[in-house]
Amino acid sequence: MLAKKKKKANPEINASSMADIAFLLLIFFLVTTNIVEDKGVLVRLPQWSEEPPIDLTLNTRNVFTVLVNAQDQLLVRGEPVKIEDLKTRAKEFISNPGRREDLAESAKEAIISLKNDRGTHFKQYLAVYNELKAAYSELWNEEAKKRFRKDTIEECNKEQQNEIKRDIPFVLSEAEPTAFGEEK
């Protein structure tokens, strides 16, 4: 005799709202989480050497000196300048569109010299560095437009980027800070 299969009532959970809840949770966490992403101004420090630096005599017209003092004021080539004007001044110096006698002979020769006091605030230092970097990246972008019909240098390929950066190299020399306005 065959065992009679017992019909068991299959208990079921109503799971139709599960998907809704899962999506709700997913969206909630998407909106409320912010992953700390690390962004910043990338710099390359000069190599350390024990020997005192060689005294290079550069043609003064090729050097763009920027001094930032302990009061966070700027002195560019001997005259006070507001930080808002720094980028324009730097660009004019590097590209020298009017072929002026007192600005850089060519972009290749141009050197930026940055010096600060020990009392300079970091945010001012970074703002100055940022403006100088911005001046160069704007010049690079202009060059990319002129030579390769690209809007920014990032759109150019590696070769083209190197070509632009070879002709307009970002040369920034930083002097040891002077000991003014040291932290109290």
Partner: peptide, 25 residues
């Protein structure tokens, strides 16, 4: 923070040969 202390740290980094630096902003 003033640059004095930052410069000291920078010098240490240079001495240690760690030259790639990113100032977070």
């Amino acid at each position: 923070v003033t640059m004095g202390f930052v410069s000291d740290v920078k010098t240490e980094l240079r001495k240690a040969g760690q030259l790639k630096v990113n100032y977070s902003a």
